[in-house]
């Protein structure tokens, strides 16, 4: 077994276990921590696919910014098992049935799908120089349009925040 295979297996195992931890843990803070761990393992997969820029941006944006805000909100609301509202029974059955249906559909869709294998390190598009050149030459219009979208989101946040005064 090569080094890459070992790393891949370890990363995948940790990713699956921590993803399970997100939904199985009773404490919301532990859930958030499990989610952060999942993001890290996914970033590890990106690195193995030679997409270093994506990996590090994934960590900065998700683990470094979004999850901090999540943690903030959860800590200040101080959620715990005692104040969690009781779920109705029919809601549980509905959840189980819809989840099961989704599983059946996913299995049916993926059963015959061909899985193209990407050789790790075969492509250099994920390296920061190549990615930047592609983004700012070939896809410059969509890139700029999406930046306007971000700007409008920021302006919206400021407007909502200012309403109180």
């Amino acid at each position: 077994m090569s080094t890459q295979q070992i790393i891949f297996l370890v990363l995948s195992a940790v990713a699956l276990l921590s993803a399970m931890g997100v939904i199985l843990s009773k404490n919301p803070v532990t859930s958030v921590l499990c989610l952060i761990l999942t993001f890290f393992t996914i970033a590890g997969h990106y690195v193995m696919l030679n997409a270093q820029f994506l990996a590090v941006v994934h960590i900065i944006v998700y683990a470094g910014a979004i999850m901090v805000l999540f943690l903030f909100v959860i800590m200040l609301m101080n959620l715990n098992a005692d104040i969690e509202p009781q779920k109705r029974n029919w809601l549980k059955y509905a959840g189980a049935i819809s989840g099961g249906t989704l599983l059946v559909i996913l299995v049916a869709a993926l059963r015959d799908a061909s899985m193209p294998t990407l050789q790790p390190g075969a492509t250099d598009i994920g390296l920061i120089g190549n990615l930047g050149k592609t983004l700012f030459n070939k896809y410059v219009v969509p890139f700029e349009v999406s930046s306007v979208l971000f700007l409008s989101a920021m302006v919206g946040a400021v407007v909502i925040g200012k309403k109180e005064d």
Partner: peptide, 24 residues
């Protein structure tokens, strides 16, 4: 690595977890 500075940002942005978790 060719993303050295971004790596530093990633790690610095994680620095807040230790303090937040400990405090909470």
């Amino acid at each position: 690595i060719n993303i050295g500075i971004l790596y530093i940002f990633g790690v610095v942005s994680l620095g807040v977890y230790g303090i937040m978790l400990g405090g909470w």
